[in-house]
């Protein structure tokens, strides 16, 4: 369980149930929880997580309330925040990073923030003093030149999407995923998180054959959507050996 990162959307299915879900995950021994701050236009997410974003927003979840929710959950396991650059920029870079730190999170995952944008420079500047980590999101098929530039920054973790496209499809250790992971291992000492499409113990084992951490997101949310937090946690329980 230590090498599993689960994904929740702050405020989904409701603020209280989200906390219940996170505490349940921690109790089951999940190593890292990725908390998504809901956004109206999450372009890298599939339909399941997108709907969860809509529901959380519909329930009134805001950026500020997301931080409060994490603080209230008071988790011992590592927490990383995931959102889109629009949410960070709108809340204010400095304030966003301060709150990330004070709510107890270890760092940020921002999939639509390229390193060659002014916002990335700004974000790096703000995270440094607070010892927050930025986890880059890498994908099969991405440009080698850009991959090298990212790896030169010696990230502690890299988030590797198992496939091109969006979250929520079925998992496969494809040839191009193997190649990408091998390339990253050769070039850096980053811990490799693998996500997108992991929904069963079998998928987790497959992912851990090549990576260090398996990420499970849409699968849990689908279970919660179907029949609530308890069913979602049951899926999490069945992921570990």
């Amino acid at each position: 369980m230590k090498n599993i990162m689960t994904h929740v959307v702050a405020g989904y299915p409701s603020a209280d149930e989200c906390i219940e879900l996170m505490l349940g995950m921690q109790k089951l021994g999940v190593g890292i929880i990725e908390v998504q701050i809901p956004f109206s236009d999450p372009i890298a997410d599939g339909e399941t997580i997108m709907k969860a974003n809509d529901i959380a927003l519909g329930g009134g979840m805001t950026t500020a309330a997301s931080f409060e929710l994490i603080q209230k959950a008071n988790l011992d396991c590592d927490v990383y925040l995931m959102s889109y650059i629009q949410k960070v920029r709108h809340y204010g870079f400095e304030k966003f990073c301060d709150r990330t730190s004070t709510c107890g999170a270890k760092g940020l995952i921002i999939p639509d923030l390229p390193y060659d944008s002014p916002e990335y420079t700004e974000l790096v500047k703000r995270t440094q003093g607070l010892n927050l980590r930025l986890i880059p999101v890498l994908s099969p098929g991405m440009e080698e030149k850009r991959l090298n530039t990212i790896l030169e920054e010696s990230p502690l973790y890299v988030y590797v999407t198992s496939q091109r496209g969006i979250t929520g499809n079925s998992y496969n250790n494809t040839r191009e995923l193997h190649q990408l992971v091998a390339y990253i291992k050769h070039r850096s000492s980053a811990q490799i998180m693998i996500g997108f499409g992991i929904s069963s113990r079998h998928d987790v084992e497959e992912a851990l054959r090549i990576g260090d951490i398996a990420i499970v997101g849409s699968a849990i949310i689908r279970e919660v959507e179907k029949s609530g937090v308890k069913t979602g946690l049951k899926l999490v329980k069945n992921l570990g050996s």
Binding site: P114, S117, S139, R146
Partner: peptide, 10 residues
């Protein structure tokens, strides 16, 4: 700008 995931940058 190009505010898209790395997947599409190339």
């Amino acid at each position: 700008g190009r505010y898209v995931p790395e997947m599409l940058q190339g």
